[in-house]
């Protein structure tokens, strides 16, 4: 009897601890919604022909709904804020456990970072990743010196102090969630024209680091092993500056390994981008208008150059995407 009593007390304690943990951990539903993106993927039907990887330059700039509407391409953006290349690699590895796309498009902006940058950004990418060997490896590769692994296993260790900062969001989404993205694309309709940027800093090193090339090699090899075509892209964001030296590094890499590389900064006029109206933050990211233009351009590239099917002809997929498109159009016309 005594044993059951003790067991009961332990179970009650653990339950209360889990409830407390759930309450204090960020929900990413109203504020910092970028933290919810990685988790949304798991609820998706895994039928994507194209997977996009990279930082905000993919999730703000590429709309899978437009790719489908324009060319019948099914795609998903597994992008997050300041996603670093080792995180892209482990996300790709994890994705391949669910599905094998025909094409992986990697945005090269993150190649400039050769070490973990910030715990806050790490959290946005890693918190909602499902537990797996890939998540463990991603955490270990991403942690800044001040972080510790246990705080990812037990978020209560990291977030307990939020108990005094709880908002309505924490209660509203204690057990529920809402849709944040459309296949990983985060809609932003604001308009803020490009004006000026800070002065261009001098580069100390023009070559990307060995660590960065190591992970780029791993991504390339993983794609090759799975018969996936790897495509490199640079979104047409005007800041942070994409140095000519970076451009040459990517061009050399692409040439060496026979990869296609598209720098959309160079064809912004052809895409029809107007930096007075097509960006929401003065040139760092495209808004809905700009992302739609870029995605139409991208749809044409993918349709023309890669062996992708028009999945609008597949009744099952069409049914799923018709519903998605309806919701998407409702949202963009709000």
């Amino acid at each position: 009897m005594q044993k059951f009593k003790i067991l009961g007390i332990i179970l009650l304690f653990i339950t209360l601890l889990l409830v407390f943990q759930r309450l204090v951990e960020p929900k990413y539903m109203r504020s910092l919604v970028e933290g919810a993106m990685i988790g949304e993927y798991y609820d998706e039907a895994k039928n994507h022909e194209v997977i996009f990887l990279g930082d905000c330059e993919v999730y703000a700039n590429i709309s899978p709904m437009v790719l489908y509407e324009e060319a019948g391409i099914t795609s998903y953006v597994r992008g997050t804020s300041q996603q670093l290349i080792w995180q892209s690699y482990y996300l790709l590895k994890e994705t391949l456990k669910y599905e094998i796309p025909k094409v992986v498009v990697f945005n090269v902006n993150s190649l400039r970072y050769d070490k973990p940058v910030s715990e806050a950004y790490n959290r946005l990418t890693l918190d909602k990743m499902k537990w797996s060997k890939e998540k463990i490896d991603a955490i270990q590769a991403s942690m800044t010196p001040e972080e510790n692994f246990l705080s990812y296993v037990f978020p209560i260790l990291r977030y307990h102090s939020r108990i005094t900062e709880l908002t309505a969001e924490d209660w509203q989404y204690f057990t529920s969630k809402r849709q944040i993205t459309y296949n990983g694309f985060l809609i932003n309709k604001k308009v803020k024209a490009v004006t000026t940027f800070p002065s261009k800093r001098k580069l100390a090193k023009s070559e990307f680091s060995d660590n960065v090339y190591h992970y780029l090699d791993l991504i390339r090899e993983l794609c090759a092993e799975n018969n996936i075509t790897l495509v490199l892209m640079k979104a047409p964001s005007l800041y942070p500056y994409w140095y000519q030296e970076y451009e040459e590094n990517v061009l050399n890499y692409a040439q060496k390994y026979h990869l296609d590389y598209y720098n959309f900064q160079k064809v912004s006029t052809e895409i029809g981008l107007d930096y007075n109206t097509d960006t929401y933050d003065g040139g760092l990211h495209l808004n809905l208008n700009g992302a739609t233009k870029l995605s139409k351009y991208m749809a044409n590239i993918l349709k023309t150059n890669y062996d992708l099917q028009d999945l609008r002809l597949d009744t099952k997929i069409k049914a799923i995407y018709d519903e998605k498109l309806n919701k998407y159009k409702e949202e963009i016309n709000k």
């Binding site: 910092l32 970028e34 933290g35 930082d55 905000c56 804020s81 300041q82 806050a120 950004y121 946005l124 004006t195 000026t196 940027f197 800070p198 002065s199 800041y239 933050d281 003065g282 760092l284 990211h285």
Partner: peptide, 26 residues
Amino acid sequence: LEYSETENCAFEGIGKTYKYDHYEIA
């Protein structure tokens, strides 16, 4: 001489930069 603003990715807050003759303050 010149003022520019850069928004943070995801997080709130704006980085402001002020350019003077020979230096720039962020």
